[in-house]
Design a protein around this nucleic acid. Structure first.
Length: 943
DNA sequence: GCGGGAGGC
DNA sequence: AGTAAGGCCTCCCGCC
């Protein structure tokens, strides 16, 4: 290491944040340890970065000693309004010291000084020696200490927020305070700090403080200039409270007078003795961390049976002699070595791998094809992994055919699929895949099916929904600290992209076997975490069973009437052309109507129309609200623009695009569903998206009529009626709404009666808008815009709603409280959605997270319910002897089937029963789930 | 690759 | 202090 790099951990502030962020875990002794766990994992991460770039060479933890500082002497109110720490946090303070000692790290605290002061002293001392310093904290007071490295790259002080995983330098300080670190103290003195009860100048917040400092230079200059400022409340306050500002400045100054209790050199980090750490982790039962120091990951030959034992907490003890060996660095993972991967080209080798998979009891599998399309994609090879680092690739379809290259020596498709078939249906062997839906569809072309499987993409979603993506490369980076070979590195991109079948076997083996290897390792990580964090319920009961169901729906596809789409396209085209001519005439010159920028300029600059809004990028808004407003003002071009927009959208997105999506092999359209695409647990649909086919306008609805049943079949569409509102009534416990649903009443009318005392078209419509606004996390402004009333009137309406339905109000506050304490929300079935930004300092961002957190349990529970219905639908239909009824599509609260006319009457009650009872037995709802079913020759006709 | 706009729930 | 202000998605287009 060329330069010493000191990490100073602000332990006290960390545990408060960890406490609020993590669920209230207890260890096996019944002690609350949530914050301790968070603290331990943070230390682990820091220490593990020892030999990495920007990692620590020296490290110390600084804690507040429970005593007062000089600040209390000069200002009695300092930190006086702080509430006592919560009951279950207090016993965790001493454990923080235990944890630090378990890592054999120095832990420093001094009577009469706050941790911030000690951190400042060490920072200055280390910088004086030319060291680099990282302060691990998120306390804004400490931002005063941030310094740029010298031009030669030496020294420098930055801050690391381990929870948000961001490193903050000077530019972050300027972003937050509008001034550099040297003026942070002055800014704090002006604006005050409610957390520490520092007064500042009343009426001056961060924005004004920044403005003043930028204008006048520093605090003293601001105070000196105050009498000359133009008369305002602010000027008077600056004069009146100048002394308070000066006192505040002293309070926020970091005190560097303390003598260093430990020399810098003693903080060197060169090894963590394993034993005290193991004892500590074992005492608290932090199994996932224990695994990392003695777990099977350390041994490349460990099978998953060892792994299972490790999770269970036995069989994990180190061998004698190894037990107390100091580890230079606590390694989270064995690095991935691709050199041992095997290319399987003989039957004997294939047999050996399949035998190994049976012996191990678990095998990761990945298929390679020549296309992303799993319906027509040709199988090119299969990779397998039976332990970390132990992986192979079985080429099948490389070279040959129309490709110029020679066909390499490889096993035949028939042989490999026959042998794989036995392994895949073997209930005793767990098959692991990443996005197994794809592999299931590819292998289904050859008649293969999977029994006993895990899908790591779905496991990741169940554990970390909302906390990042779930692609394999991203997960490998996050959990294994490993960069996967990029597909484009192997096959290229764009015009030069080649098929995987053209890749040479050496490269193909490295790439494909690595995918299986990484999948296997991810499975180990997730299996351990599922046990520890309890994410199994929703995974095992809802998401995993859905994987083969979705794969089958995608394979079936839906029939589309190409001639009908083409007819619609032509009709739209001539209407679009006609509108275009008139629009250009009325505008006085031709322009690109599809360009919002040009359109805005035509309407508001050239034609001089009034009342336009500009967005943040400076272009005139021309969205539907603006156009509707112009229509009301009697601008004739507005209606034509609305029509033009609608028809262009329908033509380009639906009638043209859908024709191209018709699969040449099946003659049907096969969407692709993502099980992990929506934070709340909903599915999403792409290529094409069949979850946004128009229905609301007559002209749009024509597109639904082009989705047709096969000859002598019909389409059956089954909808959950108002499912989210029903779930809100249940979850928020609103007796009036529950009763209305139980009676089968019109619930919007019920709401209208409660709010307005009478039911007519107008009040019912308003009530409906409010009901939906509640589901989405209400705001007076949003509601005001929707109802075309003032924000004050909207607020009055919301207040009345909360008064009439106090359950809703309680639900919202309880949900937000939970989300802030745990960083996630949960559905009735235990699906978590994470909200890492729920306490963002940016208000818009925070409020966005809050609205999402209010919506997620409701939308997510609805998603869980329809997924359960889908998983049960096939077996229920088969049990009733309905062998030809097929589920084709899911549109969030709707299922679309294709079935022979002869099965309709028998299928109808079964579908209704499965959907209506899908929550049971896991959850019993206090509202009925209403189902509406329609049938017809097309999807449009079935509604 | 981004942002505006618009289709669905 | 004053701002902007409904949740979850995907797709198309113009524009840089």
């Amino acid at each position: 290491m060329s330069q010493n790099h000191l990490y100073l951990v602000d332990g006290s502030s960390y545990i408060f944040r960890a406490y609020h962020r993590l669920p209230p875990l207890t260890n096996k002794h019944g002690e609350p340890v949530g914050a301790v766990y968070g603290y331990t994992t943070m230390l682990w991460k820091l220490v593990d970065a020892l030999d990495k770039a920007d990692g620590p060479s020296h490290l110390a933890v600084i804690l507040d000693k429970d005593s007062k500082s000089f600040r209390n002497e000069i200002y009695a109110e300092y930190k006086a309004h702080r509430p006592e720490p919560p009951e279950d946090l207090r016993p965790q303070f001493p454990m923080i010291r235990d944890a630090t000692r378990a890592f054999s790290l120095p832990c420093i605290e001094e009577a009469g000084y706050e941790a911030d002061d000690i951190i400042a002293c060490y920072t200055k001392a280390a910088v004086a020696e030319g060291w680099k310093v990282t302060i691990v904290s998120s306390d804004k007071d400490l931002m005063q200490l941030i310094e740029e490295p010298s031009p030669s790259g030496g020294g420098g002080v930055d801050m690391l927020d381990t929870m948000k995983n961001v490193r903050m330098g000077r530019e972050h300080v300027i972003e937050k305070f509008g001034v550099g670190p040297e003026l942070v103290g002055d800014a704090l003195a002006l604006m005050g700090d409610s957390a520490d009860n520092i007064p500042g100048v009343p009426g001056i917040g961060p924005k004004t403080a920044t403005k003043l400092l930028v204008e006048y230079g520093d605090l003293e200059s601001v105070l000196a200039a105050a009498p000359e400022m133009k008369k305002s409340a602010m000027r008077d306050r600056l004069i009146e409270h100048a002394d308070m500002a000066r006192l505040s400045r002293v309070l926020v100054e970091l005190d560097c007078a303390v003598a260093l209790p430990m020399p810098l050199d003693d903080m060197a980090l060169d090894g963590i003795p394993e034993e005290p750490l193991r004892a500590f982790l074992d005492h608290h039962g932090f199994k996932s961390l224990l695994l990392k120091i003695g777990g099977p990951a350390a041994s490349p030959n460990a099978s998953n049976r060892d792994f299972a034992a490790a999770i269970a907490g036995d069989g994990n003890a180190p061998k004698p002699g190894e037990a107390s060996k100091p580890v230079a660095v606590v390694r989270e993972h064995q690095p991935i070595d691709r050199s041992q991967y095997e290319t399987v080209t003989t039957e004997a080798a294939l047999d050996a791998w399949i035998a190994e998979a049976r012996h191990a009891g678990a095998v990761a599998i990945d298929t390679e094809t020549d296309s992303l399309d799993c319906i027509t994609g040709r199988l090119v090879g299969v990779s397998m992994a039976t332990a970390p680092g132990k992986a192979c690739y079985i080429p099948i379809g490389h070279g040959g055919n129309d490709l110029l290259s020679e066909k390499p020596e490889q096993l035949s498709l028939a042989l490999v699929t026959a042998k794989l078939d036995k392994l895949l249906i073997d209930e005793a062997v767990r098959k692991i895949g990443h996005n197994l839906k794809y592999d299931m569809s590819v292998l289904a072309q050859h008649g293969l099916e999977f029994r006993n499987f895990d899908d790591t993409i779905v496991m990741s979603f169940a554990l970390d929904g909302g906390a990042g993506g779930h692609g394999m490369d991203e997960l490998a980076q996050r959990h294994l600290d490993h960069a996967c070979i990029a597909f484009k590195h192997v096959c290229g991109t764009g015009a030069k992209q080649i098929s995987f079948a053209e890749v040479d076997l050496g490269t193909a083996t490295e790439y494909a076997a690595e995918d299986a290897d990484v999948t296997y390792r991810l499975w180990q990580v997730f299996t351990a975490r599922m046990a520890a964090e309890g994410g199994t319920r929703v995974y095992q009961m809802v998401d995993r069973p859905l994987v083969p169901v979705i794969a089958a729906m995608e394979q079936r596809g839906i029939m589309v009437d190409r001639a009908e789409l083409s007819r619609l396209s032509q009709g739209f085209e001539s209407e679009i052309a006609r509108l275009e001519t008139t629009i250009h005439e009325e505008a006085g010159a031709p322009f690109t109507i599809g360009s919002p920028k040009q359109l805005g300029e035509v309407l508001f600059d050239k034609m001089g129309l009034k009342g336009g809004r500009k967005g943040k990028s400076g272009v005139w808004s021309t969205d539907i609200n603006e156009l509707e407003r112009l229509k009301k003002d009697g601008v004739p071009i507005a209606q034509k623009l609305v029509d033009w927009r609608q028809l262009s959208k329908l033509k380009s997105t639906y009638t043209d695009a859908l024709q191209e999506q018709i699969n040449a092999k099946t003659g049907r359209v096969h969407t692709s569903y993502s099980l992990t695409g929506a934070q709340t647990g909903r599915l999403s649909s792409t290529d094409p998206n069949l979850q946004n086919i128009p229905i609301r306008t007559e002209v749009g609805r024509q597109i639904r009529h082009a989705f047709v049943a096969a000859p002598s079949h019909v389409i059956l569409a089954a909808d959950y009626s108002q499912i989210e509102l029903r779930l809100a009534a249940h979850m928020a416990d609103v007796p009036e709404l529950k009763a209305a649903f139980a009676r089968g009443d019109d619930v919007h009318a019920t709401t209208a009666m409660e709010l307005f005392g009478e039911v007519n078209r107008d009040t019912r419509g308003r009530a409906k808008t409010i009901n939906f606004a509640i589901l989405y996390g209400i705001s007076r402004w949003g509601l005001a815009a929707r109802l075309e009333i003032t924000p004050d009137e909207a607020q009055a309406m919301i207040s009345k709603y909360f008064e009439r339905f106090p359950g809703i109000s309680n639900y919202i506050s309880e949900t937000l409280e939970f989300a802030r304490a745990h960083r996630f929300t949960e559905t009735l079935f235990g699906r978590k959605t994470h909200f890492p930004r729920i306490d963002a300092s940016n208000q818009a961002e925070r409020q966005g997270s809050e609205r999402a957190a209010i919506n997620a349990p409701i939308q997510g529970t609805s998603a869980d319910i329809i997924k359960r219905a889908m998983a049960r639908m096939g077996p229920a239909l088969r049990a009733a002897g309905l062998d030809a009824t097929r589920m084709l599509l899911q549109v969030h609260d709707e299922l679309v089937f294709e079935l022979p006319e002869a099965e309709v009457e028998a299928a109808r009650p079964i579908i209704e029963h499965v959907m209506a009872n899908a929550a049971e037995p896991a959850v019993t709802l206090s509202v009925p789930l209403g189902i509406e079913i329609g049938t017809g020759p097309s999807w449009g006709a079935a509604h």
